[in-house]
Design a protein around this nucleic acid. Structure first.
Lengths: 259, 259
DNA sequence: CGATCGAGTTCTGTATACAGAAGCCTGTAT
DNA sequence: ATACAGGCTTCTGTATACAGAACTCGATCG
C-alpha cells in the first residue's frame, strides 16, 4: 500500500460553517468564547480521501512513477492506495480537468502524453503569465517583500555555488512563486501554478537547470521590482523566460541522452 | 427532469483503441480498410453521463439558474437530472477544478461566488492572454484566415447596426475565438476559454456590450494581423481589452440598475 | 498460413447501501 | 426569557454490487 500524503490537504480545504447558525454571537457574547476559539481549530480533520488520492496520483505522475500513456486501472490504484474505487474515480476526474490524465469513455484513464508541440506552447504561455506577474509584483511590492526577494535570491546563489542541483531548482521555484504571491492576483497565481507544474514535469527529466546567468537575470528583475518599474520588470522577466525556453529547446534538439 | 445536453459531448471525447491492437495494419493492409474507415465514426456513442451532467450544471450556473453561494445537494441534482449520485459527484469534482463550484469537506458543493476583486483579476489575466493570442495570430495567419476574420467583423457590424444585442455578443465571441484558433496554441486556447467563460458569467448580467468603438478596434486589429505585424496586433488587442475592462468597471461603479 | 468469428475475461459506468459528520429542533435548567 | 444539552434529521463520504462495453485469446474457415 502506498502512503497517502494526507498532510498535503492544502489550504484549499476551507472549513467553515454552512450558515451563520442560529446562535448569534453578535450581541450575547457569553463565556466559552475563548474556549471555542481555541477549539475551533479542529486537530483531526476528516481528510477527504479523494484529496489524498489526488495528491498521491499527481505526485506519482510528476515523479515519473506513472509513465505517460500508461493505463490507470481503477481497481489497481484503489487497492494500492487502500481505498475503494469511488475516491479514485473522483480524483481521476479532477486530474483530467487539470490535464494530467486523459479519460477515454469506456476505457478509463491514461497518463497524459505531452507532445513536443504542447510543451513548446506551455513555455510560451508561461512566459506571458510570468511577465504579467512581474509587472504586477513591481506595482505591489512592499519593502519587506523586496527584502524577502533578496533572501531567496541569495539562497539560489548559494545553492549554485555549492552545486546542489535539487536545492537550486527549489530556490528557483521559490523565487518565482514569491514574485507571483507579491503580484497579488489569485487567478494568475492559479494559472501559473498549473502551467509551471506541467512545464517542470515535461522538462525536468530531460533538461538541467540554468546556471549563473539565470540568477544574474533574477537580480536585475528584483532591482526593477524594487524600483516599482513595472515595464522594466516585465521586460526582464520576458527575456528571462525566453532564455529559459531557448535553453530547454537546445538541450532537447541536442538529444536528451546526456545523463 | 431537466434535459441533458448530451449532444454537447464536445470533441474532447476521443474514442480510439486502447492499444494498437494485435492486428497490424502496417504491412498487411487488407480489404475492409475503407469500410473500417467509414464505420470508425460510431453513430451511437455511449455518452458518459458525467459529461452530460457536467455540461448541464455548467449551463445552469452560467445561465444563473443556480445562484452563487447556493448549496448544491447531490441527491436533489441527481433526481432532477434523472441519474444517480455517482455521476453527479464526478461532475462536481470537475466543476471544482474548473472553478465553478467550491467543495467544502463534509458539507458538499456550493456555487462559486466571485468577488469583485476576483472579477477584476480575471479581466487582467484575460487581457494578457488575448494579447498573446493576437500576437501569435499575426504570426500564423494565412490569407484565408484574414478573409474569415473580415467576414466575422462584418457580422458584428451588421448586428450592431440592427441593434441585435444577442447576435452582437455572439459575433464578438466568435471573432475572438477565431483569432485564438488562428494563434494555433491549444494550451492558450484552453486557458482563454476558461477565463473568458468566467468573465462572461460575471459581467454579462450587469454590463451591456460595447458598441461601435469596439468594432473599430477590431478592424484595426485585423489589419495588423493581416500585415503579420505581431507587435502592433498585440498592442491593439491590449488596448482593446483594457478599454473593455474600463467599460465594465464604469458600469459597475455607476450601479448595476440600468436595465 | 492468415483472417474472421465467438466465448470468456477484464474493466468501466452506474446504481445502491451504509456509516459518520454536520445541522436543526426541542426540552430543560437557570 | 435565554442559553445549553441532547436527540433527530439530512447530507456527505465511502464501499459494494451489478450491467454492459471493450479487450483477449482460441477455434474455425477460407
Amino acid at each position: 500500500m502506498l502512503t497517502l500524503p494526507s498532510a498535503t490537504l492544502s489550504a484549499a480545504t476551507t472549513w467553515q460553517s454552512r450558515r451563520p447558525s442560529r446562535t448569534r454571537w453578535q450581541n450575547g457574547a457569553t463565556m466559552r468564547e475563548a474556549l471555542t476559539a481555541a477549539a475551533s481549530r479542529r486537530v483531526t480533520r476528516p481528510a477527504p480521501l479523494r484529496q489524498a488520492v489526488y495528491d498521491a496520483l499527481t505526485e506519482l505522475i510528476v515523479s515519473g512513477s506513472l509513465k505517460p500513456g500508461q493505463h490507470l486501472v481503477e481497481a489497481e490504484l484503489a487497492e494500492h492506495l487502500g481505498v475503494s474505487r469511488q475516491p479514485v474515480r473522483e480524483a481521476l476526474q479532477r486530474l483530467q480537468t487539470a490535464g494530467w490524465v486523459d479519460l477515454r469513455p469506456a476505457q478509463g484513464a491514461f497518463v497524459h502524453s505531452p507532445t513536443e508541440e504542447e510543451a513548446a506552447q506551455l513555455l510560451g504561455v508561461r512566459a506571458v503569465l510570468e511577465t504579467y506577474s512581474a509587472q504586477l509584483a513591481a506595482q505591489h511590492a512592499k519593502p519587506e517583500d523586496i527584502e524577502r526577494l533578496w533572501e531567496l535570491q541569495q539562497d539560489g546563489v548559494d545553492a549554485l555555488a555549492e552545486g546542489d542541483v535539487e536545492r537550486l531548482v527549489a530556490a528557483n521555484t521559490a523565487l518565482h512563486e514569491f514574485i507571483t504571491s507579491v503580484a497579488d492576483n489569485a487567478v494568475l497565481a492559479e494559472l501559473i501554478s498549473q502551467v509551471g507544474q506541467k512545464v517542470r514535469w515535461y522538462y525536468t527529466p530531460i533538461a538541467k537547470p540554468r546556471g549563473k546567468e539565470a540568477w544574474n537575470e533574477h537580480s536585475q528583475l528584483i532591482k526593477a521590482i524594487a524600483k516599482g518599474d513595472a515595464d522594466r520588470a516585465g521586460e526582464v522577466m520576458r527575456k528571462h523566460t525566453e532564455r529559459t525556453t531557448d535553453f530547454y529547446r537546445k538541450q532537447i534538439s541536442a538529444g536528451a541522452s546526456q545523463g
